[in-house]
């Protein structure tokens, strides 16, 4: 009967299966670390591939472009999403369903399809950018990236806002004479800080890893450059890939540890983890944290 009181498999079976999964998942990652420090021509070890991340001009500038894109995407995403979500929650709760639908829509439409249809739209986006003096800048991608990160960021912000009593807080601030800007910046934002952080981290990870749209629209971002040099200089590509994966992993891990402590709802939901690729309305389980109103 003791077997019945246990959740999950027998420990021996559990650990041997876990070991197999560990081997399958860690071998490629460790191989990347090994491969990226090899000297393929003369044998032995070299750190050249990692140095190239900063010394190779084309790669370094692609890294800067991607970081810049990540920054602009985060700023624009927060500027668009935070006030809108607060407004919808306080003034137009009936629009919440529609907003959620719109924000989660990007998950169901493949990036490739967006690219195919986007050509026409971008003609006048670049026209507008050249009008303000940015010309053919890769920053034009910011707009489509904001749409791309919406589902992830929306969920992060939404669960943070569900955890506080937004209505009471803002009414208190307003009745004490604060303007809307002050209310948002000095009362609401500090209270949903963890949600803002998760939304931003996830957006950064998405932007740094995005390849499809950038490559097909002809912009040289980090991922595009990694593929471009891959044929000639495999070790540098592998080093850059590993760097991106590690950065993403560290961001999500920090978030997971941080979010776990700051959470008041007591739900098991992780800010990053639970089915970020599934629209909340579609996910196999109503989301804990109070945002599952019908």
């Amino acid at each position: 009967m003791s077997a019945m009181t246990r959740k999950g498999p027998h420990p021996a079976l559990r650990w041997s299966l876990l070991a197999l999964f560990g081997i399958f998942f860690l071998t490629p990652l460790l191989s990347m670390a090994d491969f990226s420090t090899r000297n393929l021509i003369q044998g032995g070890r070299t750190g050249q591939a990692w140095k190239n991340l900063f010394q190779d001009d084309a790669l370094y500038s692609a890294i800067l472009i991607s970081l810049g894109l990540a920054l602009f995407t985060v700023v624009l995403m927060l500027l668009v999403l935070v006030p809108t979500m607060i407004w919808v929650r306080l003034r137009t709760p009936w629009a919440k369903g529609m907003m959620e639908f719109l924000c989660l829509l990007p998950l169901t439409i493949p990036a490739l399809v967006i690219v195919v249809g986007l050509k026409g739209v971008y003609d006048w986006v670049t026209y507008f950018l050249s009008y303000v003096g940015l010309g053919e800048s890769a920053l034009a991608l910011t707009f489509v990236y904001v749409v791309l990160v919406l589902p992830y960021s929306y969920r992060a912000l939404d669960s943070a806002m569900s955890a506080i009593d937004l209505k009471t807080l803002s009414e208190a601030a307003r009745s004490l004479g604060a303007s809307w800007t002050t209310t948002i910046m000095r009362v609401v934002v500090p209270n949903i800080w963890s949600g803002i952080l998760s939304a931003s981290f996830i957006a950064i990870a998405v932007v740094l890893g995005e390849y499809t749209i950038a490559s097909l629209m002809g912009y040289t971002t980090l991922q595009v450059q990694i593929v471009a040099i891959g044929k000639a200089d495999g070790t540098t590509s592998v080093a850059a890939s590993l760097a991106v994966l590690l950065l993403g992993f560290v961001l999500l891990m920090v978030l997971s540890l941080f979010g776990g402590r700051g959470r008041r709802t007591g739900a098991t939901e992780d800010p990053v983890a639970p089915a970020p690729s599934v629209p909340a309305s579609l996910s196999p389980r109503p989301q804990p944290g109070g945002n599952n109103h019908p």
Partner: peptide, 13 residues
């Protein structure tokens, strides 16, 4: 979610 290109290079390595 964020692998993409990096995973291709992981297996090449």
């Amino acid at each position: 979610q964020f692998g993409g290109v990096a995973l291709a290079f992981a297996f090449i390595a």
